[in-house]
Design a protein around this nucleic acid. Structure first.
Length: 947
DNA sequence: TGCAATGCATA
DNA sequence: GTATGCATTGCAA
């Protein structure tokens, strides 16, 4: 058994197409203008297979002239396939030449498809005792699988999977591989133009196979079906039979398997090199030479140990893991040497000294050296992205450009802890500055090892966020923009995401070292770059006093997490389920058919074409009927179905986004929900929250509000406290504009919207109607966003004219407010940016645009950004100060969440009174404005009650 | 599988 | 009219 011979049959076109499209976004064009993507893609995968498997027998199969038999059966067969792309047609002769030079047999038979050739050959070889692997991504081949015939499928993200009988049974939910033919016949195949049974898709086909076993079984027993399906299947019996025939791969092509011809021979290396040279493949040449330089004998015996899964020796894994050699890695930064003029520097083209540190004495000496530095850049490498569960794989250090060290970590937890203890003096040294990119992550990882990162911090991501908040701040982008350097990509190291992705732990040490130290080295270089820019942009203070101290605060909040009442959410979920089902039924009844209510497309057709609820339905910019909330709300009063749809939507959203999603996000290791605050995505300076987003938990509707009840204190000894700034943005605009009327109102603690209404509508404060107050409130908010009469009339019951009048009166009432807004726009025009009270800048490149729409947007930004941003600055100060007081006082109470103008705390009950005053004082005193800041406190046994 | 479009939750 | 994050559908390469 162990020396059973192995034959690999390669489905050439399938791999060529796949290779071609893998490069579609970044096609390989050589200096002669030829598109070589398809050739490179195909060769990458062929070499990959050879390298991994070292087959003793191999052939490559092509189509020729299409399938005569199938076209005879069904003239539309493959008729709607697009013309073969130019880049593929030109590739074929080259690939033939290369295969010839490699002494690999090309199997092709006029009038037959590669499927049929492979099918026939595999059966012949099986009879002669071979184990056969069909190298193809094409699912159709599953029908050929036997005990000795396997599919060898490339998978996205690199690597292969082997499909034997069990895999086929599982994937297709069939009892035998032959049933795959029936399955394909039933559901059809759009790309091959196999019609299939109308109305039967994947789901139904699987059901039928289970029920009837085959196409014939189905057609003979249609009496067991009912309704529309019965009619359809019966009416299309012939089509069904034909589809099955089309899907069947032929096993009687006139070709012969000749073991001797198929033996994998030594290639004519010079000839292959010559062709590669002509095509300008450099990396591929190296790869080719490497593949055939190794003595193939070693891998041979090992690879058949496991019956169904070809093995990969560790050594081969390493080379395959190099990524850019593998077509299926989809890596596109391999072969671009030709335009070297524009090429960025890389680790290969840059002098560097990156060294891993040996365990034991060497590490101790290294730490000694580390402690002599005044400023060090470090970067942790871990097993994952979740700092709560990620384990340290290594830590890279750099303090001189072009040079750095890597300390690898053992997998054993105790040993890892021992090693980190050796490094503790460095991390906890107050006088050594720590530099990093996204330090919050490293701080959290180290916190799990009970290490505190002390001393001054410099985070390059944060620095760049202040320098240019509108850009993205990941390290690769920064390195390319500021250092003209392309770092080793993580995909190159561990592959694309998916099940074949490696963990950093599985990457060979020297690669870990290169990758990790490179990151630290680059970060160090970026720091030097950004340091000056921070001073120039006058944001050094903001950096030192706000963003950097906030890193530790956020890290602590995220590590803390919040307690969630899962049982409560589960009961909420079943309630919702019932109500959704009821609504669904009503909607289907009213519509007279069942359809997907969640699909705007289908919904639009039902409402506006079938039921014709409106004469001239509004369309979206893509030409669909608009089913947006405001459009439907308008119709709701006339049509019950609309109200039901709106309710359905609301409930479905609530359930999927919150009620069902939140319990999934509970971290098993802590039993709590840990959001991740993004400090560098919102251009205005706000935080954002994700995984999960805890800044958009419902509150407006009664039903949605219930979700807040699921957020609960740590235990009975604790209580939640929510503290929110009242009208902070309006207070800011009042203060900055020095609009006395408004400032007065705030100073007297008036209801600001009522006060505005009283002035704008010229009525005494006590006689303001609800409607007047509501309208005034809308304008007040509108001002912050940069109102237009159009927008205002959309939001209120007012007409365009009335809205305009209201806005005009508003500006007359608060003249300085208008002046302030104009001043902001003027400032932006002159300087190209606006700024917050703390000097946080937002650049507005479109402020002088000739396009009125674009310019208008920039002008609204000029008004809004300083207000929203100043509010963000202020709450950040409050957070830092509160955190520091909590630390110093060693309180048990913890700050958990921030929601733009609100902070949520887990309060230890005995500390409640003290906390109330501390929090209120710190928040209200965070920043001194011409208007007092006001904070409302609420407490409760859940987040809803705390409001 | 990945992406755009649509819709909707918050401040 | 400002600022976000995320679920779902349906299509593409």
């Amino acid at each position: 058994m162990s020396d059973q011979k192995r034959l690999f049959l390669v489905d050439a076109y399938a791999l060529i197409f796949r290779g071609y499209y893998a490069f579609i976004k970044n096609p390989r064009i050589n200096s002669k203008g030829e598109d070589t993507s398809a050739i490179m893609g195909f060769m990458n995968s062929l070499l990959d297979v050879i390298k991994r498997e070292r087959p003793d027998h191999l052939a490559v199969c092509f189509d020729k002239g299409g399938s005569v038999d199938r076209v005879e059966m069904f003239e539309a067969y493959k008729a709607n396939r697009d013309e073969t792309p130019e880049g593929i047609r030109t590739a074929i002769p080259y690939i033939h030449d290369i295969l010839k030079a490699m002494h690999i047999p090309i199997m092709v038979k006029e009038g037959y498809e590669a499927d049929d050739v492979i099918g026939t050959l595999s059966r012949q070889a099986e009879k002669e005792g071979y184990k056969v692997f069909m190298v193809t991504p094409d699912k159709d081949f599953a029908q050929l699988v036997t005990d000795n015939i396997f599919m060898y499928r490339p998978v996205f993200g690199g690597g292969y999977e082997t499909w034997g009988i069990p895999e086929v049974q599982k994937k297709f939910e069939v009892a035998t591989p032959e049933q795959v033919i029936d399955f394909l016949g039933m559901m059809g195949d759009a790309s091959d133009n196999i019609p299939g049974l109308p109305g039967v898709g994947e789901k139904t086909a699987k059901k039928f196979i289970k029920q009837f076993g085959s196409m014939e079984g189905l057609l003979e027993n249609t009496h067991e079906l009912k309704g529309k399906m019965k009619e359809k299947v019966e009416a299309n019996a012939e089509l069904g039979k034909l589809s099955k025939e089309l899907a069947k791969i032929m096993l009687d092509v006139p070709v012969t398997f000749d073991a001797k011809d198929f033996e994998l021979d030594h290639p004519d290396i010079d000839k292959v090199k010559e062709i590669f040279q002509e095509l300008e493949f450099r990396r591929l040449t190296d790869n080719f030479l490497k593949t055939f330089a190794e003595e193939p004998a070693e891998a041979k015996t090992e690879s058949s140990e496991k019956a169904t899964a070809p093995n990969v020796t560790p050594k081969e894994q390493k080379s395959a893991g190099a990524g850019q050699f593998s077509l299926f890695g989809g890596d596109t930064d391999g072969e671009v040497e030709s335009d070297s003029e524009f090429k960025r520097r890389t680790i290969e083209s840059t002098a560097h000294f990156y060294q891993s540190v040996a365990p034991g004495m060497a590490t101790k000496l290294f730490v000694k050296n580390l402690l002599n530095q005044s400023s060090v850049c470090f970067d942790t490498e871990t097993t994952g992205l979740n700092p709560l569960t990620a384990e340290l794989v290594g830590i890279a250090f750099a303090w001189e450009i072009g040079k750095g060290f890597y300390v690898p970590f053992p997998e054993n937890k105790d040993e890892a802890q021992e090693l980190i203890e050796v490094l503790r003096p460095f991390f906890e040294n107050d006088s050594i500055e720590k530099i990093g990119q996204n330090l919050k992550y490293d701080i959290k990882v180290l916190a799990k090892y009970n290490i505190e990162v002390k001393g001054k911090l410099f985070d390059t991501m944060l620095a760049h966020y202040l320098i240019n908040p509108d850009m993205r701040h990941n390290m690769d982008v920064l390195a390319e923009t500021y250092l003209n350097y392309t770092p080793i990509s993580i995909t190159e190291l561990i592959g694309k995401k998916g099940k074949n992705q490696l963990s950093m732990r599985e990457v060979p040490l020297e690669k870990q070292t290169e990758y990790g130290v490179e990151d630290a080295d680059i970060t160090l270089q970026l720091k030097e770059h950004f340091q000056n820019e921070l001073t120039e942009a006058n944001t050094q203070k903001l950096f030192d006093d706000i963003e950097i101290p906030l890193v530790r605060v956020l890290a602590a909040m995220e590590l803390e997490g919040i307690n969630l009442d899962k049982a409560f959410l589960n009961s909420l979920s079943s309630d919702l389920n019932n109500d959704i089902a009821t609504l669904e039924k009503k909607i289907y009844e009213a519509a007279g058919e069942e359809f997907n209510i969640a699909s705007p497309k289908q919904l639009g057709i039902v409402l506006f074409e079938k039921l014709k609820l409106v004469d001239k339905p509004k369309k979206t910019k893509t030409g669909q009927y608009s089913t947006a909330e405001d459009v439907l709300s308008y119709l709701a009063k006339d049509h019950d179905i609309i109200q039901n749809i709106l309710d359905y939507r609301g409930l479905a959203k609530l359930k999927s986004t919150y009620v069902d999603a939140l319990p999934e996000q509970v971290e098993p290791s802590t039993g709590r929900v840990h959001t991740d605050y993004m400090q560098t995505v919102a251009a205005t300076g706000r935080l954002s929250s994700n995984n999960p987003n805890l800044q958009n938990i419902p509150i407006r509707t009664e039903r949605g509000r219930q979700v807040r009840k699921a957020f609960i204190p740590r235990n009975e000894d604790f209580i939640l406290l929510a503290a929110d700034y009242s009208q902070i943005e309006l207070r800011i605009i009042a203060a900055l504009s020095e609009e006395e009327t408004m400032i007065e109102a705030f100073n007297h603690g008036e209801d600001i919207h009522a006060s505005t209404a009283s002035k704008v509508f010229n009525v005494p404060l006590s006689e303001v109607t609800r409607e007047q107050r509501a309208n005034a409130k809308t304008v007040n908010f509108g001002i912050i966003y940069g109102v237009s009469a159009f927008g205002l009339s959309n939001q209120t019951d007012l007409s365009r004219g009335e809205a305009k009048e209201l806005i005009d009166t508003y500006y007359e009432t608060y003249p300085k407010l208008k002046a302030y807004m104009n001043k902001q726009v003027d400032f932006a025009r002159d300087h190209g940016y606006v700024q917050t009270v703390l000097g946080r800048r937002r650049y507005l490149k479109d402020i002088n645009s000739r396009n009125a729409v674009v310019r208008g947007a920039a002008e609204r930004n000029a008004v809004n950004a300083p207000i929203q941003g100043s509010a963000a600055d202020i709450i950040k100060i409050a957070m830092i100060n509160i955190y520091s007081k909590l630390e110093v006082g060693n309180y048990k109470s913890k700050m958990l969440l921030q929601v733009h103008d609100e902070l949520v705390f887990d309060i230890y009950k005995p500390e409640l009174e003290e906390m109330k005053s501390l929090i209120k004082t710190e928040m209200e005193g965070a920043y001194k404005l011409a208007v007092p800041l006001d904070v409302d406190l609420g407490i409760g046994d859940n987040w809803l009650e705390a409001h």
